[in-house]
Every structure is written in C-alpha cells, then in structure tokens.
C-alpha cells in the first residue's frame, strides 16, 4: 500500500544574517512499507521530523532524495485530483485548516466539487452522508467553523478528508489540541471509520498512550530516523531501544502513589541541524558505550522489528 524507499528531506536554514548556513536533517534516510488496513503510529519528541514525513507521504512536498510509492505509483507522477482520491490529511488544528467564510456543507463538498464528477444533487447527498458518519447533525451543515466547538471542527476536517473515500489518511496530531473527553470521542470515531470504510492510517502523535491505543505498527522517531519500528503489541510489551523505553517511562498514567520516573535523558536536547555521529541518540543515552559514538547502529530487523541500537540484543 505504502512504500517509502530511502527517503531524505533536508532543509537549509540560516539563523542570522552572517551566521553559517545549516542543514536541518528533518527526515534522514527512512525505508519502510505499510500494508493495507494497518495503522502506523509515529511517535517522537517535537522536531524529530514527524510532520515532515507526513507531508512527504501526502505528496505535499518532494523528498530531497528517495521515493514514496502509494499502491506502486510515485506521487510525483499523479495529478492533484488522483492524489486526493488516494490519500488525505487530517491536521492538529482544525481551526486553521478550515476556511472561516465557508459553511460546513461547502467545506466538506469542496473536494467533490474539485473532482467535478458528481451532479449537484449527488454531491449534496454524499456530503450529508459523510456528515452523518462523523456524527454531525444536519443542522451543523449550515454553520460556520467559528460556530463549532473544537471537537466538532475536527469532525468537519475528518468528513472533508473522507468524502472522496480515500484509501489512506495521514492524521498529524489529530487530537493534540483537544480536551481528553473530546479526544476520546475523536479516537473512537476514527476507529469506527477505519473499520467501516477499510482505511489505512498514518497516525502521528507525541502521546505514546494514544498511539498504543490506535496503532497496529509503531515507529519511534528520533532525529529523522525510525530508531525502533515494528508491530505495536510486542513493541510496547518489550521495548528494545533505550529511547523507546525512556518515552514509555515518561507516560504518566493516572496511578496515584507511583513515583515520577527518572527517564535519565539528561539535559541535552536533540538538534536536527547537528546530528551526532555514530548512534544519533548517544548523547542522551544512559547506556552508551564507546562504539555508539563512532559506528552506525544496525538496521536489520529481528522478529519483524528494527531497533537501531548496538545494545538492544
């Protein structure tokens, strides 16, 4: 369904007028594939390249090197309308991604209108059907985004993404701006829609508990690479990479009396314009040995899981 082949995306940035040019290695040599019907959860700290990867998969931005194939086709060769029927995004902030001057029915109808394949009546039916599926009443169709709550806006964004019945949806932090009660509503909705419509999701989140709940495959991203990647259940049961373990330890479950863990990552913070040699995680790794500072860690899978770490035996 999705094949990502040795994809890089670098940005050039200049921090001041006279300072030297720096290369931000947002996505730094990723290869993976995803089967139809799977949910790939991508987790990692802010700035590790999750959104950039999402945009590359959506074809919103060309890779610096490598290629992304969707159902065997390169996105670059597809035109916008073909792409829109195949893959759609849902972003974090529904407010900024919805046109404030359009009514809900226009927003959700726009992708259909752009395809130009349906009569006005059929288009209206498709919009109303989609609104019902995402749990919005008919009365909502005539509202403007400003008249909706955050959760309702995210439902509109989901309806717009699904109205063309794409095969794949890239959800980039779809619930991060929402309260937990609304987050639960949206996660349940996304799960139902996946079953009903046979969707494949790329689900990006910084919240590991959310990813555990929704994902069938998990990729732990650090400075532009998947440092651990494999089927969700075993990965959560026996995390192998020290970074995955640190992330898991940082999840504060609502269990009173349990102490706050010492995640042991120290004070240094990753900088994608200054990627360390050897294992890119070594400056923060509590277990690092000499070899980690110089050699590139292994990338071969074991039991269907890749763990880019010398010590993850």
């Amino acid at each position: 369904m999705i094949e990502v082949k040795n994809v890089f995306r670098h940005f050039e940035s200049r921090s001041g007028l006279f300072s030297e040019r720096r290369v931000v290695r947002a996505v730094d040599g990723l290869s993976f594939s995803l089967e139809s019907g799977d949910v790939l959860g991508i987790v990692g700290e802010s700035g590790c390249g999750k959104s950039t990867l999402g945009r590359l998969i959506l074809g919103l931005m060309p890779p610096s090197a490598g290629e992304v194939l969707i159902e065997g086709q390169s996105l670059i060769t597809l035109d916008r309308r073909e792409r829109a029927r195949l893959i759609q995004p849902v972003f974090q902030d529904p407010f900024s991604s919805l046109n404030p001057r359009q009514r809900v029915r226009e927003i959700v109808g726009l992708p259909l209108a752009a395809q130009g394949a349906l009569s006005a009546a059929k288009q209206r039916d498709a919009v109303m059907d989609m609104l019902a599926r995402v749990g919005l009443s008919d009365a909502m169709a005539d509202r403007f985004p400003a008249q909706l709550s955050g959760g309702q806006r995210q439902r509109v964004a989901i309806a717009r993404a699904l109205v063309l019945r794409p095969r794949i949806v890239v959800c980039d932090e779809p619930t991060s701006a929402l309260d937990v009660s609304v987050q639960a509503q949206i996660l349940n909705l996304l799960a139902d829609l996946r079953k009903d419509l046979g969707l494949t999701y790329i689900f990006i989140s910084h919240n590991l508990a959310v990813v555990e709940h929704v994902a069938t495959e998990v990729a732990v991203m650090y400075l532009g690479r998947f440092v651990e990647h494999g089927p969700a259940a075993p990965l959560f049961a026996t995390p192998r990479h020290p970074y995955t373990r640190a992330l898991l330890a940082s999840v504060l479950t609502p269990e009173p009396g349990v102490p706050i863990p010492d995640v042991g990552l120290g004070e240094s913070y990753p900088d994608p314009s200054n990627v360390p040699a050897g294992c890119r995680f070594h400056p923060r790794c509590p277990m690092a040995i000499d070899r980690c500072r110089s050699d590139t860690p292994p990338t071969e899978p074991r039991d269907g899981r890749v763990t880019e770490c010398f010590l993850a035996a």
Binding site: A184, L187, A191, A215, T253
Partner: peptide, 15 residues
C-alpha cells in the same frame, strides 16, 4: 475513563 493507559485500556477497543 477517557484516558488511554498503556497496558490497561485494551488497544482497539472504544475508550
């Protein structure tokens, strides 16, 4: 009840 908890809430089940 809304909060997913690794190891407690069942993955895939509704929250």
């Amino acid at each position: 009840d809304c909060v997913p908890i690794p190891g407690k809430t069942a993955p895939g089940e509704p929250l």
